[in-house]
């Protein structure tokens, strides 16, 4: 038998967690995977959807704060995100179906820790940190330190993710997330890539970050991209492909072979950098890039 408490204050949530309850946000991972027989429902659940502060999106001097309960439907339309942290909106817009997006949350996505999660790679390239809180205090961790394996995080069982924090964006910057998909709804990333680009005044690359979805046990940042600084964005976009393929350690499964994944992750990385650079240069590419630019963001 599962029991569920539905507090309205954060303190009560944290207390329930301290007492051994598991948080449930939208339930689209938690409930569905128990129905599929992957993991039984925990004995005690605490719902976090009635805590108003967890649904806030706020700008501050150090950037943007997204409450853990913010849904994908909101992420994909929220102006603050669409304008400055577009890759997150690109990703949210691709999640499942309208009903999945209406209930699935950013906190659930991040804390579920699936290597195929869509908001993960965008948050990595944008330098996000999650804020974890428990009755005994609060701390911020980078995503690289949060995810320790498929479905595993370094958060303690009594820690709630209250928010995701995104640092301020540099000038002339843009970001994008593209995903390989075999159909246009209810798809799970076969592979996906996010890029954040900022441009120098002459239009060359000033900074670039790329992260990869579904090609390793966790979301992976592509290392050592400094060599791309100073390059023309189209050249940089081509160069990123072999780097992404080399970073990936994909598996073969029903969705794709490792060979095909290793190839297409390069393609996605190239397209993500291209789209991010175009946004950085001031061009508007509608969210999500996948739809605006056609299949898997082909030009």
């Amino acid at each position: 038998m599962t029991s569920i408490t539905i507090p309205t204050s954060l303190r009560d949530v944290l207390e329930a967690l301290a007492g051994g309850a598991r948080p449930i946000a939208g339930g689209t991972d938690l409930v569905v995977s128990s129905r599929q027989g992957k993991a039984p429902l925990p004995e005690a659940l605490v719902a976090i959807d009635q805590v108003a502060e967890l649904s806030e999106v706020k700008t501050g001097t150090d950037g943007l704060m997204i409450g853990a309960m913010v849904t994908h439907a909101r992420l994909m339309t929220e102006e603050l995100l669409v304008e400055s942290y577009t890759a997150v909106a690109d990703a949210a817009a691709l999640v499942g179906s309208p009903s999945t997006r209406n209930v699935g949350t950013i906190g659930g996505n991040v804390m579920n820790g699936s290597p195929a999660m869509d908001t993960g790679a965008p948050l990595v390239v944008l330098g996000a940190e999650v804020e974890l809180r428990s009755t005994s205090g609060s701390r911020r961790v980078s995503l690289a330190d949060l995810w320790t394996g498929p479905g595993r995080t370094s958060a303690a069982p009594d820690e709630l993710c209250v928010a995701v924090h995104l640092p301020l964006r540099p000038v002339r910057s843009g970001s994008a997330y593209v995903r390989l998909e075999y159909r246009r709804a209810m798809e799970i990333a076969v592979v996906g890539a996010a890029a954040s680009v900022s441009l120098a005044e002459d239009g060359t690359i000033a900074a670039v970050a790329v992260a990869l979805t579904a090609v390793a046990p966790t979301i992976l940042a592509v290392p050592d991209l400094d060599a791309l600084v100073g390059l023309d964005p189209t050249v940089a976009a081509q160069r990123v492909a072999p780097a992404a393929s080399a970073t990936a350690t994909p598996i073969s499964d029903l969705r794709a072979s490792d060979t095909y994944r290793r190839h297409t992750i390069g393609v996605m990385a190239t397209r993500a950098v291209e789209a991010a650079a175009r946004r950085a240069s001031g061009e508007t590419i509608a969210v999500p890039v996948n739809r605006a630019l056609g299949i898997g963001a082909a030009r």
Partner: peptide, 11 residues
């Protein structure tokens, strides 16, 4: 149909 040559995805 449209073909994405880099990935083989057909729409």
């Amino acid at each position: 149909v449209r073909l994405d040559r880099d990935t083989g995805v057909v729409r």
